[in-house]
């Protein structure tokens, strides 16, 4: 596992090094560009806050009221059979529907079960490896006024399911 840890740990510094080196080689004002990008980041964070607040509120209430535990208990036979941790389920359902909401749910899972726990890592992996399928299909077809989407939704949801199952399995193997 040491090789995996080393690769994961050095991936980001190496990529940053390559990027900065390219910037210097092409005589770009690297620092100014960095500042511009960071300023755009501010907008992303500010627009994320209301969704985060709304989702934390709703998911928090599901948890403190006991609804979440109740639902997890009911469906656990099915998830146990599929070897999917039931704590992940709310995320798996919400992921294709809304990006920022599922991010809120993933954060909630990481805080509750530990960011470096298997469940926390699985939630992170799902967030990193899947996309907001419904939203993506909607904007790409609406932009060119397409009404018949043929097999796209089926194939995309199959891909999501495969991604979620792969996330669960790989996180259990790597930990």
């Amino acid at each position: 596992m040491n090789v995996v840890n080393f690769l994961s740990a050095s991936a980001i510094p190496i990529i940053i090094l390559i990027i900065i080196t390219y910037g210097i080689k092409e005589k770009q004002k690297v620092f100014d560009i960095f500042l511009e990008g960071a300023k755009d980041g501010l907008k992303i964070v500010i627009s994320l806050f209301p969704t985060l607040l709304g989702i934390f509120l709703a998911i928090g209430m599901l948890r403190t009221s006991g609804v979440l535990d109740f639902v997890i208990k009911i469906i656990s036979p099915v998830t146990n059979f599929l070897k999917i941790p039931s704590e992940i389920l709310p995320l798996a359902f919400l992921r294709p529907i809304s990006g920022s909401s599922s991010m809120g749910v993933a954060i909630d899972i990481m805080q509750k079960y530990g960011v470096d726990s298997v469940i926390g890592k699985t939630a992170s992996t799902i967030m990193g490896s899947t996309e907001t399928t419904f939203y993506t299909i909607a904007i790409y077809t609406a932009a060119v006024k397409i009404k018949k989407i043929r097999f796209v939704l089926v194939a995309a949801l199959l891909a999501d399911l495969a991604g979620i199952i792969a996330s669960v399995i790989i996180c259990q193997i790597l930990s």
Partner: peptide, 17 residues
């Protein structure tokens, strides 16, 4: 530490899709 897992999961999803 999730990078490797994300690669595996994302490639699996893409290949299936």
């Amino acid at each position: 530490s999730i990078i490797l897992g994300v690669w595996v999961a994302t490639i699996t999803a893409a290949v299936v899709g």
